[in-house]
Amino acid sequence: MSAPTDLPTRIPTDLTDEQLPEVLGRSLAGLYSGEARLPARPGGRNAALKALGAFTGKDYGARNHLLSPVSRLSMYLRHGMISPLEVAQVVRAGSRRSDREEFLRQLAWREFFWLVLRQRGAAVLSNLEEPKYRAQWSPDLPADVREARTGLPCADAWVTHLTEDGYMHNHERMWFAAYLIHWRKVDWRAGYAFFREHLLDGDLASNALSWQWVASTFSGKPYMMNQENIAKYSAGKWCDGCTAQCPFKGSYEQLQEKLFGWKA
């Protein structure tokens, strides 16, 4: 399909950051969502090398904790602005064995998803396996979730990170995905599309297959968490003093019975 002739087809490659929102916004009018603004982190090889230079892998072994250092290199890896070998080389050269091995294992997850996509193609956008519980999911993202007004300070913060920063900590991604799929009973593909819209590192392989992993259509059981888990790994930042009706309270056994109908 050719572009209609009245639409601009060429965009200068030397726009300054000051020019970028207006000129690129005009060139891509009607082809994007949200405000025409610079991303929270700049794209490009130069920014990627700067981010890589600032990362040592130190304390990465504690990566599940929101306050622990993570690389934030995923957006650069996603677009090939740095390569996995360049990143591995830095981590191998400068970090403790436990941090190094945990980081390289996470890099391997990325490669695993890449290989699954190459093997399965567009099928990754359909359930690769049957869900491991009697799932009844609605297709659309609820408006209160999209607009970060669920009334749950934690969930609203996760969405705000996504839409404002184009980035979420991996543990926030997992919590949000579990909340959307298991508590709100929304099809994982609605979450996948929401992430694809905003994540600077959003790619088909890691995004779709991670959602399927949480949904249990690409894993042996559904991923879930409880309030204790959220409080522990966020240092209580949302839980301390929270007055919301918390749906995550309870033991794993109680929540599994409530969400999946599994008797303890």
Partner: peptide, 8 residues
């Protein structure tokens, strides 16, 4: 797709 992704 958000503009920020395209700008990145």
């Amino acid at each position: 797709i958000a503009f920020t992704r395209l700008a990145f």
